[in-house]
Amino acid sequence: MVALRRGTAERRRGQLALIGVIVLASTLIALLSAYSLQPKITYERGHLQAAQLVHLARACMATGSCNDAKLKALVDILSWLNQTYPTRMYNISEKRVLNLLLNSSSTSVTVTNATVFRIKTLQTEFTNNPEEVRITVTTASEPTGRRYSKQLGDRVYTMVEVKVTYTHSYSSPFFNVTLCPSLRALDSVADLKRVGKCDWLVGAPLELSKGPLTVSGSQVYRYDLKDEFGIAVPVLFQG
């Protein structure tokens, strides 16, 4: 009888302890749920800011006469809008337009337009060396040697076939990208065919080409196409 009573008393103490634990747990959860959360937000910078500079460089090139003054005007617009909108732009320490003509041989001419930005990233704070975002647009023209006539209405054009390799290369601390943008003719005379990812076969009408121009001592004709971003693509060939 005594043992039975003792067992009942122990069970009752255990039950009370259990209820105590449950009450304590629910009180803690209730307190936790009332706690106001303060999420810490970190903004990722890099990809977007470099892409923004690529876009500005392309917009400048699309005017057809990009120079340091135009590029500076674009950067000023960006800096002004950066005060209002969350572009979170880096400090741009330098911006330069490089128009280079490379590799002019008897068979091919390569035209390279480049724009360089130097930006102050977080790494610059430690190394003191600004990082570079470089936009390079390359057009390589190589005549195939084929010429043919094309009649449109009552006009006959002499078409010069040129193999064109056209690329956009963007290098930055955050990404390295090469694009092969689409090309389009500004008139309905030129023939345009994509033969590879960045390779095109262009039938350029000699009568609608500018020239002859002197490039690196050679007489060449220039026929302009446009890419999908509105940038002029110079197709150069000998007449």
């Binding site: 876009h55 500005l56 699309a62 005017t63 674009l74 809008l81 909108y85 969350p86 979170r88 509105g230």
Partner: peptide, 22 residues
């Protein structure tokens, strides 16, 4: 459009400026 205010109420926003000079 430039000058148009961004509606408040969002904590994480990323913006980009699109320009066409032509």
């Amino acid at each position: 459009n430039p000058g148009e205010p961004l509606e408040p109420g969002h904590s994480v926003c990323y913006g980009a400026v699109l320009v066409n000079l032509t």
